[in-house]
Design a protein around this nucleic acid. Structure first.
Lengths: 169, 169
DNA sequence: CAAGATAGTTGCATCTGCCAACTATCTCTG
DNA sequence: CAGAGATAGTTGGCAGATGCAACTATCTTG
């Protein structure tokens, strides 16, 4: 923890430290609000948060098996199964027989599911477009990169952590 | 809003539209992973997600009443009350008598609570600092600004929406 | 001081998520 | 090719989180 050190050099950059704190606080605020907003979305769009993520996954990544969906959502496969149950009941998704594996099924969004996903997506995009308009394209793209890295890093630490507790001491 | 135009002008900027989509996807991924990571944090740090947010609020914003905390967390006051119950049971927070209102109490983080919050915060900051180090200060700060705006916009639509359903058609 | 507002708690129903047990199917090895 | 072991998905059961409504205690206002 000093001059010739094994720790990231960056720890000693005060501007970086400050920027990180500010970003962390902003991100945390956003998470809190979004978690509320997402709870709220349930009654607005007739799907719950997980159902919404699942639908989004099926629409934007295409058909996948239940296990793949569970991994995408960071949910237990049993939970994912019930999420799909709900989407199927509402006719937003369907379980098709898997062509090569009779144990598995292929999950697919129905046309109604696609339409709903489009509506939800557009309602959010419209809001965000306005907020981004003030920034230059360079900055906008860099921001996306930052978010992707944060997501990738978090995903990695989740995976190497064995999917569960406790990689943080 | 703008000159002779009820619609956002920006809707017609294709580069903005594309950047927004990309940022949205990245943000959504991040939220999904973080929600998992946060669920996971429970067993690592002996607090649930809401408990963690509540503790963070008490440490970083100082003492507040239950109603204020509930508003901060976007939770019903009954839920907030139970969150505080849990923090109190674990001795991370305390309910002090309110000096001017005997109905109310002032919530405060205990020294143990402060310490825990510091540990959690630092463990996350350390990770994020490394990821941010590659970006210029301009990008880092722009990122923070965007997140803040997103949070503010979402909070506003939550509030004007009456705290519940359904301001989004 | 009485009426109405407000702070917080508690009971209740619901939802979400995890784990473990189970069935059906696949895959690999001898 | 038979059987052992791995894998996909479902279901039952449990713990925790959350909102709503009812309730108590207290404040505020006319």
């Amino acid at each position: 923890m000093s001059p010739a050190n094994p720790l990231p050099v960056l720890a000693s950059d005060p501007a970086l430290a400050r920027d990180t704190e500010e970003l962390y606080d902003a991100l945390e605020d956003l998470l809190r609000v979004y978690q509320f907003r997402d709870r709220d979305r349930i009654c607005c769009f007739d799907v719950s948060v997980s159902q919404c993520y699942a639908l989004e996954g099926l629409v934007r990544r295409g058909s996948m098996t239940l296990n793949e969906l569970a991994a995408h959502l960071y949910l237990d496969k049993s939970t994912a199964s019930r999420v799909v149950d709900a989407l199927e009941r509402k006719a937003y998704a369907a379980r098709l027989p898997h062509p090569r594996d009779r144990r598995a099924s292929l999950l697919e969004a129905t046309p109604a599911g696609r339409e709903l996903e489009g509506k939800i997506r557009e309602s959010i995009l419209a809001e965000e477009r306005e907020l981004l308009a003030d920034f230059t394209p360079e900055v906008r793209q860099a921001m996306t990169q930052v978010l992707r890295r944060l997501a990738r890093a978090a995903a990695a630490s989740v995976e190497t952590g064995g999917g569960s507790c406790c990689r943080i001491p």
